[in-house]
Design a protein around this nucleic acid. Structure first.
Lengths: 348, 348
DNA sequence: GACAATTCTGTAAGCGCTTACATTTCACTT
DNA sequence: AAGTGAAATGTAAGCGCTTACAGAATTGTC
């Protein structure tokens, strides 16, 4: 067993340190948590003992005794892609400054898995949670309530009392982009959406497209719809199916950048020129939208700002304060190369 | 305070449940942990009480009493990109099957941050750790040893007693790719590497390129080197600097796909045809290497396999078994479109 | 040098849970 | 109806730490 110190060396405890340093456990505890309460001399002794023994505090015991863990949690739909990474990073960074650790879990876009993960994180000591969207099981909401866990819903915005949202208006944001698509003359429009059940953001974005169509006197019923699960490959095949239709769309709007990346890939594979023959748009403005070809025109959302604000709001809520939520955050269109005017042929 | 049940309702404990169900705390505990030890009738009663009260066990107390947490940890360099996501997913999935929760932390490619994160995860109850690479502070290794935390080093392979590696041979893998580059006639070769200090994989990959050059009787001293930190933007600017040199390289090999994506982006911005004028290669084969343009020729590494194997190995180690590590895992070249023969002009 | 004010340290009571062990209950035998 | 073993439940001792409180040591003051 070369991996171990020895078969019977137990992991050192506070008491071991105390004994070795010749002080009480209380003093050792204070050395670790409030050094200024301890005299310089004893602190030296204690810290030396800590080092000698390779002591590390037991989280469970500490949490139990102190009734706080210094841990916040985040449940995101997927770690698979960079969508939530940037916001999460900002969230973690902001909390790190305050000495708070972040625990992350993924729900795979499934409400029951999400509920499980929420329970798990709370059981593991998360004192507050960052959540994505607002669609979740009533049980999850009930649980958060009885456990008194402050939480914020991000990536969405609803003005509902007793619910803190740090996000933006998905519907309006997508409507804005759709308006531009329509203004460029597109009338055969398709929309590749992520699964809408249990996903308020996907629904809102879809509704946004319809809003813009109605506003432009185009019947939303003419919108070609592909509803697929999340992934590059899914976007790719959905785009393929759309292009197999007759007539095919001149603009394919996608519910997120990952789907759009897939669509772009398939367009290239089929030799379809973007945006000359078909325009493609995304939503989210993640890293890859800049490096795909052609660079993706998409909706920019305030990833970092959301993460940082969520962190601050949760900290305030943990202190019993009321977080200042100022309303939905801004989004804007990141104009790049994948959206252009409707081609004449398909439009005449 | 609409966010709370009431100002003075405490979070329910095991004892509350016991009282409500009219049984002892031991029975409630057994209901939660070993249902078959309890009669059907009392279990019903207890579970009802649990539901009524919205009870959730306190992780700290449970960990303290049971001396196990059912939690494994993973410290990865960055969550920023999809590099580690796929492997991590497999890791989590495999552990999830066994009822084990995964905690993830990021080190930002900094050994001291990594050491901190290791301590944090262990303090939070991680019973075993997945780590990336083998470069880390001696203190980190010492800590793992005194705390008796089983760990595996992934994404690397070294045959060192007492150290479990689940990875591949970075050096050989990169050498293989470099051999192909050389075989295509390239002699002006550049290499964009991630920071090599504290990163055994970056060093190994670099060494691999040199190996191949020597094997082809090309002086490794002629290799143009750019060493940058991790990121698309860094790859982009490094590529720019290389193309500003005279003569410029005909092949730019990159230490990872993210850097390569940046290089590809800059090539497009400068109107440099890939691979006709300049070839570009990557390493890792992450999602984006398929969607960039032109699709990236890169080294495929067994993301999922590593994650799943690491999970199994750690489980075995926790049970006091010796994990069966069969040697380095296979890698191969993912041939796509960004590598081509050296252009005549620059080569004549 | 005695006394108060101040700083430091020790004592000990839990925090909420698990589990070894003891006890009770129950379904069968005889 | 008493006796038996198995199954179900209860009792209570911690797990390793924090922290209120009390007590000891140190410092400053007159």
């Amino acid at each position: 067993m070369p991996l171990q110190t020895g078969p019977n060396t137990p992991v050192p405890t506070l008491e071991d340190v105390a004994k070795r340093a010749g002080v009480s456990t209380a003093t050792v505890s204070r050395c670790m948590n409030a050094p200024k309460m301890v005299s310089e001399k004893t602190r030296q002794k204690v810290m030396q003992a800590v080092r000698d023994l390779g002591y590390a505090p037991n989280f469970g015991a500490r949490a139990l005794a102190a009734r706080r863990t210094g841990t916040f949690g985040a449940v995101i739909p997927t770690m698979d892609n960079a969508i939530f990474a940037r916001g999460l990073q900002a969230f973690q960074h902001e909390l790190g400054q305050a000495g708070i650790t972040t625990l992350v879990a993924a729900s795979s876009y499934d409400p029951h898995t999400e509920e499980d993960q929420i329970r798990t994180l709370v059981a593991r000591g998360a004192e507050a949670l960052l959540l994505i969207g607002s669609d979740r099981t009533p049980e999850a909401y009930a649980f958060l309530q009885t456990q008194k866990i402050p939480f914020v819903n991000t990536w969405t915005y609803e003005d509902r009392p007793g619910r803190v949202c740090i996000g933006f208006d998905n519907r309006r944001a997508m409507a804005m982009l759709a308006r531009e698509v329509l203004a460029l003359g597109h009338r055969n429009i398709a929309y590749i959406t992520a699964q809408r059940p249990d996903n308020d953001r996907a629904r809102a974005r879809f509704d946004g497209v319809c809003d813009a169509m109605r506003a432009a006197d185009v019947d939303p019923a003419t919108l070609m719809i592909e509803e697929v699960s999340y992934g590059i490959e899914q976007g790719r095949t959905a785009f393929g199916r759309l292009m197999d239709r007759t007539p095919h769309p001149t603009a394919v709007m996608c519910g997120n950048d990952v789907l759009a990346a897939g669509a772009l890939r398939e367009a290239r594979a089929r030799g379809i020129a973007v945006p000359d023959q078909v325009s493609i748009t995304g939503f989210d403005d993640i890293d890859i939208s800049e490096i795909v070809f052609p660079a993706l025109t998409t909706v920019h959302v305030p990833h970092k700002d959301m993460g940082a604000r969520a962190a601050r709001a949760l900290r305030a809520m943990c202190d019993g304060e009321v977080p200042d939520v100022t309303g939905p955050l801004d989004t804007w269109i990141a104009w790049r190369d994948s959206l252009g005017p409707a081609p004449r042929a398909a439009n005449g």
